[in-house]
Amino acid sequence: MLTFKHVQIGQGDFRLAAHLTVRKGRRVAVIGPSGAGKSTLLGAVGGFVPLISGALSIDGQDVTDARPGARPVSMLFQDNNLFPHLTIAQNAGLGLRPALRLNDDETARLSHALERVGLAGLQNRRPGELSGGQQSRAALARILVQNRPVVLLDEPFAALGPALRREMLDLVRALATETGATLMMVTHAPEDVQRIADDVIFVEGGQAQAPEPAAALMDNPPPALRAYLG
């Protein structure tokens, strides 16, 4: 469970207010116009954007002032999710152990994760030798071995074509179901919402609204969301 208690997030002149709860294991799409603060909201959960006031807790544990690495959160950014000079196995392995000295159990978990995302046999390649889709899979393998209760996706598949993006979303959905992680995902596309999300957080006018069930909301959007969807 992810709880924003009277949170004010600030970045430069920009302000975003959030007072809401995301239930455990839900897959939540964060939508809204460009510049409304979708990435800022995820950045606050990840620990990259400081809170001005309010409190943030994950599964009852207060993380308002925790370092990004100390939060029970894994995150994929729009780009630079893999170190180009390390192999796929090293990149994913960093999610298990930053010193990369893996024991047998961890090695097994790593190869299982790579197999699970469909990269078996490619573990010694570097990101530059893989296609865009395979790079996304490698990043997801790391999310899988990190096995954190909250997964944040800040449009990591934006550069992929439609078919590949759908494929990745299906994979994300399956992985989230398997691990039981709570998922927050920024997106622009209504079809992504329908494909993956249980709930939707609509961000607009300096306010992140409480999550509402995706199906009902998208079928019958309130005026502001209707204006955004067009």
Binding site: R67, P68, G69, N80, N81, L94, P98
Partner: peptide
């Protein structure tokens, strides 16, 4: 380019 990724992975400064 990659400082954010290191931070989210919780890498120490040596790592």
């Amino acid at each position: 380019g990659y400082g954010r990724l290191c931070v989210t992975l919780g890498l120490s400064s040596f790592q």
